[in-house]
Write a protein that binds this DNA or RNA. Structure first.
Lengths: 341, 341
DNA sequence: CTGAAAGCGCTTACAG
DNA sequence: CTGAAAGCGCTTACAG
């Protein structure tokens, strides 16, 4: 009889359930159940197991667990970009909330490309994620089918939908767009342009809110919509600003995102345009820098951190098979009035 | 005899090696070897297996693979922030390169906190990553020991070191800081301030380059170093700019990062300071927006995308156990001269 | 409430 | 070059 535990040739040297079981004087399966918090384990044994696991420094093997249970502790997150602070804030909130519950986040950056999204999702699904967070509702039929067929719990972020069976956390992009436009109207503007890039679903929903406000005020003019499909950037904002002012002579411009609006404000002195005297400017998302520029930028503060937290919480409930109170959480935004309009 | 394959109660319904083996008329282990590209498999069989796998749409189970081989296809990456474009660019390059070779990236954001880094690393190591990428060399002794003990191949990014056994991809922060300071000297500046935040190792290495240049020119003055430990931001740059100009009356300011410098440029009109007439300004990293501001910002273009790619390639070699040519790759940066100095 | 057996889908180590 | 057996470290499904 020797104290040394004989290990097979292939042992990883890692502590296993069996080591803990031996230390606690129970069977491995009881350790498994106790550690996972399954009820129907004698509280006394649970305590003994917990103590032994802690003392030995036992850490369950995620691969073995995933193989045996057919579910991992990975959560796949699909977002369009990492270069927009919006999504970084969202992501950090998701990651912080999920980490605290033992889940890892696998990030997929789609670059607003439906084919890239589909490819990323396929790769992520191979890892049998326990949950999925995707941005908005706009995607290829194939991607939608993959999500459905995978039966992986899924939460949509940024937009809202009341469709049955859909889980989402976001806010009404349309209402926010409308409110910002109404702010510009209230400041006396009548020829209000909408300047947008990327043209993803959310940008177009803001456009819809813009139209609604202007139609209600009787001053909607389709010629004042400037829609560019390329990615949003400071440079594009600067370029669009110069052109729109020269061509359309608006008294206000609603840029669909702060980066475009910031680019416009940076270019204004060079173009010899005074904001808001010559033209008022507003952005969307209230990104870093908008409060620093001269003039400071009027924008819409969007609840991305809250969206990330709520979405993670909702997903945790879904992954645990718990009943959830609301399948669609709508969060609040606010218009931030500054010097530019 | 029935065509339906009888599956056990616990089958995941997933295609397995055995399905492919049956289709190809070989044993499962041969399929495993063929698909992993192990030599010592008859090329004819390899072809037959490949064809069968492709036809059936077989995808190996990462969990089973990880459990059996004691190594996953995860690569853990530790970076300080996601809110600095610098690290996003780095990360995207890493992710793109590794994905192409079948590896997944697990991102850990340390927020420049050694304790958070250690905690994240512990969590990541539980997943037995196949490789590790960490930022710089500054970390707790515990974290260093964890990396060492894990025996997971590790590449350090952003900085360089010739220490034996260390793998790194980066550039000389000190040389770059020196070159930018020399540029300011060449433009006639003598009272050159160094304005820094966060004060991580790289920021201090740039400071060292700044000192070297000024000492060589005989105009180093410690009173012109303004070091703030809090995180870098536009607002802090604006605040520091006003104070430094008022207190020290420098003829140039070298901000350790573009976000500080951009904040300064945004605040300049409000403060009634004309750049570069009253004071020249330079930044570091050439972030988005630096070419758009008025005046446009002189900066140092840093090779973060290249660092990401090279680091991923180096790590791939290490993970495959291949011999690597250089364990320290030093990449080129360049001073970008614009209107601000 | 507890446990022995079987299995998750791969790879390793050993034979031949 | 190929394969049968055993094993990676867990959890499921079945008994009791």
């Amino acid at each position: 009889m020797t104290d040394a535990i004989r290990r097979s040739r292939r042992s990883s040297g890692r502590l296993t359930l069996e080591d803990v079981a031996r230390a606690a004087g129970v069977s491995p399966i009881t350790v498994s159940r106790a550690l996972r918090g399954e009820r129907s384990v004698d509280p006394v044994l649970v305590e003994r197991v917990r103590e032994a696991a802690a003392r030995l420094g036992y850490v369950p093997d995620p691969a073995a667990r995933a193989l045996a249970s057919q579910r991992s502790t990975h959560v796949a997150v699909l977002i369009p970009l990492l270069t927009n602070t919006l999504f970084v804030d969202l992501l950090e909130a998701v990651q912080r909330t999920l980490r605290a519950q033992g889940f890892q986040t696998l990030i997929g950056v789609t670059h607003y490309d439906p084919r890239e999204e589909e490819q990323l999702l396929r790769e992520q699904l191979m890892h049998r994620p326990a949950g999925l967070i995707v941005t908005g509702f706009e995607r290829s039929e194939e991607t939608r089918a993959l999500i459905q067929a995978s039966r992986v719990p899924c939460v949509h972020v940024m937009e809202t939908s009341r469709a049955p069976g859909v889980h989402c956390v976001g806010f009404s992009q349309q209402d926010a767009g409308q409110a910002l436009t109404e702010h510009l109207l209230a400041r006396g503007a009548r020829r209000i342009a909408y300047a947008a890039a990327q043209l993803d679903a959310r940008v177009m929903q803001r456009a819809e809110g813009y139209r609604r406000a202007l139609q209600a005020a009787g001053c909607y003019d389709p010629a004042l919509e400037f829609l560019r499909p390329e990615p949003s950037s400071f440079a594009l904002g600067a370029q669009m600003f110069g052109r729109i002012v020269a061509e359309a002579k608006p008294d206000a411009i609603f840029f669909c995102n702060d980066d475009l609006a910031q680019g416009a404000l940076m270019a204004a002195p060079r173009l010899g345009i005074s904001v808001p005297r010559d033209v008022a400017v507003a952005g969307f998302n209230d990104l870093p820098g908008s409060d620093q520029l001269l003039p400071s930028l009027t924008s819409v503060r969007t609840p991305r951190r809250e969206i990330g937290e709520e979405a993670a919480h909702m997903l945790l409930q879904l992954m645990r098979g718990e009943a959830i109170s609301t399948s669609c959480v709508e969060l609040a935004w606010s218009v931030v009035t500054r010097e530019s309009s």
